[in-house]
Computed example of a mutant assay.
Amino acid sequence: MILLTIGPVLLGVFALRFYLDRRRISNAIYLFAGLAVTGAGLIGSGGVMDRSLTLTRALIVASTLVVLALAGVLLANSVQMARREGMRLANLLTIGPGVVLLIPYLVLGVAIATDSLWPVLLVMLFVVGGYFGFVFACFVLYSLLYGRLPYQPGMDAIVVHGSGLSGARVPPLLAARLDRAIQIYGEEVAQGRKPVIIASGGKGSDEAVSEASAMADYLIARGVPTESVGLEQQSTTTRENLLFIKRLLGERGTNIRMVLVTSNFHILRTAILARRLKLDAEVTGARTAFYYLPSAVLREFVAILVAYRWTNIVAFVVVVVALPLLLRR
């Protein structure tokens, strides 16, 4: 009964925090933990301690399996990216992480084959894999949930984040973002509003024009009035996008509500950045080719880990200290 109390409480905390601000990454932890604890309470048997141990062991096993599956997906994705996009370094970035994630399993195989288990090293490797597998599962689950949220109309500005050009041409990834922005613009206009679409992105060293300029041409060529298109041509990162947009829209008024348009794999990190910069902004995503998602999602996950590095370091130390004690009981 205790787990069936704790689980719904965690889900209740998640629901409250989600209602107050759905752009918190901690929402992911409450959601995943609440579902896991509730599930253990529903299917478990025995005393509270037995159920807790069963849940802990199940999470360790599930997390390590998530890491193993992720390694396989990354290695397979590197082959597919090379076939579709060419043998460029950027398209092969998933090979390294895929190999690294396999190391604990290779160590386990060697230990079993030689009948010489290396207890401390083995436990540490699987604790590392288990922790990051758990965090990654939370991140993916919440990203999927956030990405499914319906668009909330009533925006004053539609901000489209750049993603790189092919010379002066808008490539498919960026075109999908612009098409999504045009769709939102049409919906807003149909309801009597006149939002501005802001194309955001500077000029890269290998680009003929700024991203914002190429994006604006794309929008105007597809029927968006010139007076409804704004430009932000200085930024080179998502954070800079948001900082410059905050300054630009601040000149238009103090109560500007905006929707940020990016790719579906990028929405959660964009939303978190917007919250940290105190922007009144929601995020919506454009569809991305499936083969592109594994490497893109991995980059987003790593960026989140880096952004919350101290939180992860403290949490990981707690897990390393507490988990062996709990499993001994």
Rank of each mutant, 00 (worst) to 15 (best):
R287E: 00
A58W: 04
N255W: 03
L165W: 10
H161Q: 13
N91S: 09
I272T: 09
L327Q: 03
T238N: 11
E85S: 11
R247W: 07
V107D: 04
N312E: 07
I184Q: 09
S163A: 15
L173D: 06
V259K: 10
R309Q: 07
S163C: 15
A190T: 03
G130Y: 08
L144M: 13
R222M: 01
R88G: 05
R23V: 04
R22W: 05
P97Y: 03
L174R: 09
K194Q: 10
M49Q: 07
G154Q: 05
F265Y: 15
E188S: 11
F14D: 00
L92V: 02
L273F: 14
P97C: 06
G250D: 03
Y131R: 11
P172N: 14
D179Y: 09
L59G: 08
F301S: 12
V320I: 12
T270G: 15
S200T: 12
A58S: 15
N77L: 07
F32K: 11
R51S: 02
G285N: 04
Y19P: 10
P119T: 09
R88V: 05
G201I: 07
V99E: 05
L326C: 06
E227W: 08
R148I: 08
A296W: 04
L144A: 13
T288C: 06
G98Y: 00
L59N: 00
R193T: 00
F126Q: 04
L293R: 12
R51N: 05
G201F: 08
P119C: 01
S116R: 14
R239F: 12
F316C: 10
Q233K: 15
